[in-house]
Design a protein around this nucleic acid. Sequence first.
DNA 1: AAATAAACGCAACAATGTTGCAGTTATTGT
DNA 2: ACAATAACTGCAACATTGTTGCGTTTATTT
Lengths: 140, 140
Amino acid sequence: MFNEFHTTAEELIRHSGGRATAGRIGILAILLAEQQAITHREIEQRYPEALQLDRVTLYRALEWLAGKNLIHKVTSDDRVWRYHANRELHSHQHAHFKCTRCAQMICLSDLPIDQSWPLPIGYRFQEIELTVKGLCADCC
Amino acid sequence: MFNEFHTTAEELIRHSGGRATAGRIGILAILLAEQQAITHREIEQRYPEALQLDRVTLYRALEWLAGKNLIHKVTSDDRVWRYHANRELHSHQHAHFKCTRCAQMICLSDLPIDQSWPLPIGYRFQEIELTVKGLCADCC
DNA sequence: AAATAAACGCAACAATGTTGCAGTTATTGT
DNA sequence: ACAATAACTGCAACATTGTTGCGTTTATTT
Ligand SMILES: [Mn+2]
Ligand SMILES: [Mn+2]
Ligand SMILES: [Zn+2]
Ligand SMILES: [Zn+2]
């Protein structure tokens, strides 16, 4: 469980000025190793049983990592947050794809969408949230 | 509580080939009277206390109405479904706006977005879900 | 090694939605 | 108008996801 991702994770966390605890490092390492956005539950399953990690601690660590911009969380129609490591390659604003069959969720390319979406008078734009739904390659 | 919306609601329900129960009619009337998409809780509050309506029945009625395409439900980052009557004027695919301060949610115009979003090889497009976030006129 | 703020683990709670089942009711046919 | 019946309802119990309070532990600094 001590691979390249662990090392990177620890570096990133220390660089963010927070305590480098086993939980945070392990969690971020899991997210760095994953290409999809995964749920709290899925992170729990990937986390080695030997080292135990309370679910509340996991929730709090994810919140902390998101606050430090090391990960981002994605909303979904199944009422479950999914988390994904922030990579250089995708900007803050990007679309996501969700498979309607297996629920896998991946990040798509940056949003080529005009930031000034036509809103009613008096409304102020902040951000766009876009999810494309369909079938993934496995489920097609 | 017997206004124009009630009459319309009952007609729509009968036309859909389901039982015209007090609950369904009342619920649809509430949604027809509303311009925003509102939550289960908000519908409950608007429903006259005198006529009582169980929360489970409300959930089931909403599911039924959505299945009959008389209303649509919208996902949100607060893990709460919001419901809105289907009007002729907006197509099946349209964007929504959600105020990040008061959580009000309105329907925006039809999606001028290319239905063929660039997906990885082997992926199949089904639909797009787009929410613009910002401040509504009241909260600006 | 000691001091200390930060993080953790546990238990209890909250919010939203679902399921099973017995009882009720809207509709249909007579 | 009345009876038959499938559709609908109400209740209780449950499931899932996430949050809060608080006493204990730990990573970091001195
Ligand atoms: Mn992403
Ligand atoms: Mn809408
Ligand atoms: Zn899939
Ligand atoms: Zn607002």
